[in-house]
């Protein structure tokens, strides 16, 4: 039996692929901190998104033509996306020692999962675009194309909102910390941070160029998130990545505070308090540190 695609099917598949690949490109631009920096790595992500959307786009026409084996391709895709997560995690872990400070395993895990989920976004966007076009029961391109594009755009927006987590700025208040040095001890807003400023030069450096922020949770439940070691490491990483670090970088929990707070202090290359606030506020809340208010009583 001869199997040939009809013209409306070709429209549907092409539009599905375009919408899926567009979804991947759009999500590459949405979160500037979690995309690859180099063009070749950027290209890798787009090609992976293109493959994901191709698989999503052909699934519905294939099933409707009675080719139920095609559903197994989706499971192969899932396997590939898991490999993407694994590869991204390994790559970031290998590069840990080249960074100003470590991202930490918790942050790397979050970034890897984001890479994986964005391929699913591309695949689901393509799949639902094609499904909507099929349900429209029209063969006219003038109906099919707007139907697919609008559905794809709506699905992308919904999926992006669904998969987008909170940031530190959503759950915490961030303010400048006042640096004070007593002997070899560093205090921020009167809270002890470290006593490793034993050399005169280190004291001068911190007193002259040091920056510090105090981060306080807005709700008691957020304290558990904020004081998580992986979360603090991620905040420090983002702060240091945004401003660079000349020397010394510290995070410190304040055990004497009832409400909980952490301090980030370091000597940056770029002395910009606004950028520091921005970087800290936009650090994602990590999955392993996230606490859901309705489960954690007192939130």
């Amino acid at each position: 039996m001869e199997k040939a695609l009809k013209e409306p099917d070709i429209y549907m598949i092409v539009i599905g692929i375009i919408m899926g690949a567009s979804a991947r490109i759009a999500t590459l631009k949405v979160d500037y901190r979690q995309i690859p920096t180099y063009p070749c790595a950027y290209f890798n992500s787009i090609v992976m998104g293109f493959i994901a959307s191709s698989l999503g786009a052909i699934a519905i026409p294939a099933i409707l033509s009675g080719d139920f084996v095609s559903i197994t391709f989706l499971t192969v895709a899932v396997q590939q996306f898991r490999e993407t997560r694994k590869a991204e995690g390994e790559s970031l872990s290998r590069l840990e020692h080249t960074e100003y400070t470590k991202r930490g395993d918790a942050y790397i895990d979050g970034i890897s999962k984001t890479f994986e989920s964005r391929n699913y976004i591309a695949m689901v966007t393509a799949l639902l675009s094609v499904l909507a076009m099929k349900l429209s029961d029209s063969k006219a391109p003038a109906v099919l194309i707007p139907c697919g594009v609008i559905t794809g755009a709506v699905v992308l927006i919904l999926l992006y909102r669904f998969t987008k987590g909170k940031t530190i700025g959503d759950i915490c208040n961030i303010r400048d910390g006042e640096i004070e040095i007593k002997g070899s001890e560093l205090f921020v807003d009167g809270i002890f941070v470290t006593n490793t400023l034993g050399a005169d030069k280190s004291r001068e450096l911190f007193a002259k160029d040091g920056l510090a922020v105090v981060i306080e949770p807005k709700r008691p439940a957020s304290r558990l998130t904020l004081e998580n070691y992986g979360q603090r490491q991620a905040i420090l990483f983002e702060a240091v990545k945004a401003l660079g670090v000349r020397r010394y970088k510290y995070t410190r929990r304040n055990f004497s505070s009832d409400t909980g707070m952490i301090i980030i202090a370091f000597v940056p290359m770029i002395h910009d308090k606004n950028l520091l606030h921005y970087a800290v506020a936009h650090t994602p809340v990590l999955e392993n540190s996230r606490k859901i208010g309705r489960i954690v009583k007192g939130g």
Binding site: S184, N195, G198, S202
Partner: peptide, 12 residues
């Protein structure tokens, strides 16, 4: 290395 000056005046 990081330098710590102890209260007794010694350094580590």
């Amino acid at each position: 290395a990081n330098v710590v000056q102890l209260k007794n005046g010694d350094y580590i």
